[in-house]
Design a protein around this nucleic acid. Sequence first.
DNA 1: CCGACCTTGTGACCAAATTCTCAAACTCCC
DNA 2: GGGAGTTTGAGAATTTGGTCACAAGGTCGG
Lengths: 225, 225
Amino acid sequence: MPDRPRRIPEATVARLPLYYRALVEMAEQRTPTVSSERLAEMAGVNAAKVRKDFSYLGSYGTRGVGYDVEYLLFQISRELGLTQDWPVVIVGIGNLGAALANYRGFSARGFRIVALVDADPAKCGKEVGGLVVEPLADLPRIVAERDVAIGIIATPAAAAQEVAGLLVSAGVTSVLNFAPTVIAVPPGVSLRKVDLSIELQILSFYQQRRDEAAEGRRVAFGGLT
Amino acid sequence: MPDRPRRIPEATVARLPLYYRALVEMAEQRTPTVSSERLAEMAGVNAAKVRKDFSYLGSYGTRGVGYDVEYLLFQISRELGLTQDWPVVIVGIGNLGAALANYRGFSARGFRIVALVDADPAKCGKEVGGLVVEPLADLPRIVAERDVAIGIIATPAAAAQEVAGLLVSAGVTSVLNFAPTVIAVPPGVSLRKVDLSIELQILSFYQQRRDEAAEGRRVAFGGLT
DNA sequence: CCGACCTTGTGACCAAATTCTCAAACTCCC
DNA sequence: GGGAGTTTGAGAATTTGGTCACAAGGTCGG
């Protein structure tokens, strides 16, 4: 048993998947070793950060050489829990839920979508991405029988909190929320959120700042209107 | 002209959309004022953070009373650039791109999808979410004619960097990348990314930690297998 | 108009994350 | 085997973000 109780900073955890992706690519090209600099470039961060991040996992590199791609890939996979596969349920099969159900990137990383659930009886029974949509009432049974640990919420905002509650009482301990609302989960349950329009709003903020700055310069320098 | 060169921390900018959403909700209920505490609850943060965040924007509250919902909403909208509407182009009309094209949450915040673009000739001419898919070759013209400032990339990873380049040379200065790969844009262009499987991987990390901890306890206490 | 009560705004402190820096440790070539 | 060249690992310094605590400034009832 390795010495587990190392504490890995959240910011580092959030970058591990980037390194993972870069390493998978290197492994596919049969590159035996990689430097922190090269890896940094591929992951879009800087080299010092890469090395510091890896130092939290352990000393897996060799000075003067770099990191062994296969070995590091294994260590990161293990750390991220990607050596096993995780049964996932998606609740809310609208446009977004259906797109997620069809998304190939999940299964590639060991996330296996085992059930699609929707409250709308009209949607139940339909097939989406190779699975039949099941009624919300069956959620507890589905989670228990198929050993689901991760739930994805892709419902409208109004239903999200209720669904989160159902997921948690059914036994799900990790929740990914796509609904544009804040939801609460009890301690001991992980929650992450993805909000599409928030990302656009952040872009809008900086975009507007640039536009204003440009406007300011144009006026200041007395350019033509 | 307000005193603009206030520097607003990135972390604060990322939370403004949360406050915005909460305030819209309060405004709909005709609530005239709101305290930092109430707002904190709705946005899922703590009250001190709310007040500190608002203090970067200016002193818009009244001691002993709280914040005027309408006024604060206006200030935040203005700050986020939501008082104007932003023409958006989506490149890559697969499952995800189509879901985004149909997503109602964008238009509700002033993001108007004005074009859908795909490299696949088979997809061009088809209608998705009320728009006809146009060929990638027309991107420069589309961006110029429709004054597009924001581009969304929803292509496969392999095409993302090339599309980013096309968007930027066409004049787009804000890019939201859904493709599971790192892309580079020149300075002066904003880039944000949403990676669906990365979020799951982060959940997987913590999920696995919990499972291991539970396992450790079970073994340590000599529970039944 | 006064005193009890609320709630903001912010300075001071604390924690987390990032960057800098360089000794240590390795390879490779001669 | 020794010296030049690489590259890691990690302590120190810096920057950024978060929390605390409370004075300042407001309301409101009497």
